[in-house]
Computed example of a mutant assay.
Amino acid sequence: QLNSMGREVFKENICLHGAFAYQLKETRELQKIKQKLEADKTLLLQERETSEGLIRKKILQINCQKAQIGDLQRKVEKLEVALCCTTRESVRQTQKTQHQVLTESQASTVEIKKLQQLLEMKDREMNRVKKLARNILNERTEVERFFLDALEHVKQEIISSRKHYKKKAQTAYYRKMMEACAGKVVPKIQTFKSNLNSRNSVYRDLEEAEKCYWEKIQFEKVDISELTWEQKERVLRLLFAKMNGTNPW
Rank of each mutant, 00 (worst) to 15 (best):
K184W: 08
G183A: 00
A180T: 00
F192D: 03
C181M: 08
F192P: 05
S198H: 08
E207D: 06
A209P: 03
S198E: 10
C181R: 05
M178E: 15
M178H: 09
F192C: 05
Y203C: 01
R199N: 14
E208Y: 09
E207L: 14
Q190C: 08
G183H: 00
K193A: 10
S198L: 03
P187T: 00
A182E: 10
F192T: 06
V186K: 02
E179C: 06
N197S: 11
S198A: 13
M178I: 08
D205S: 13
N197G: 11
Q190N: 12
I189C: 08
E179L: 09
K193C: 12
L206T: 09
E179M: 05
K193S: 14
Q190Y: 04
S194Y: 14
E208L: 14
S201K: 03
K188Y: 08
Y203H: 04
F192G: 07
K193R: 15
R199G: 11
R199H: 10
N195C: 10
A209C: 12
A182R: 10
E207Y: 09
Y203W: 02
I189P: 05
V186L: 07
K193Q: 15
T191I: 03
R204P: 06
K188E: 07
K184R: 12
K184T: 09
K188P: 15
E207F: 15
T191E: 09
N195D: 06
Q190E: 13
Y203K: 02
C181D: 11
N200G: 01
F192W: 04
R199T: 12
A209G: 04
N200E: 03
R204F: 11
V186S: 01
S194G: 12
A180P: 00
T191C: 09
S194P: 09
R204W: 08
K193T: 15
K184H: 08
M178A: 12
P187R: 01
D205N: 08
S194M: 12
T191P: 05
V185C: 10
K184L: 15
V202S: 03
P187G: 01
L206E: 07
L196G: 07
S201E: 03
R199Q: 13
A180W: 00
K184S: 13
C181W: 05
M178R: 04
S198D: 12
K193D: 05
S201V: 02
S198F: 04
N200I: 03
E179N: 05
A209Q: 11
S194E: 09
L206Y: 13
Y203E: 01
A180Q: 00
N197H: 15
V202L: 03
N195V: 07
Q190V: 06
E179G: 04
Q190A: 06
E207V: 14
I189T: 14
S194H: 15
D205F: 09
M178Q: 10
N200S: 02
N200A: 01
L196H: 12
E208A: 11
K188W: 03
P187D: 01
A209I: 14
R204T: 12
N195L: 05
K184N: 10
S198R: 05
E208K: 11
L196P: 11
S198M: 05
A182H: 08
E179H: 03
N200P: 02
V185E: 06
N195W: 05
E208I: 15
K184G: 15
N195F: 04
I189N: 11
V185G: 09
A180I: 00
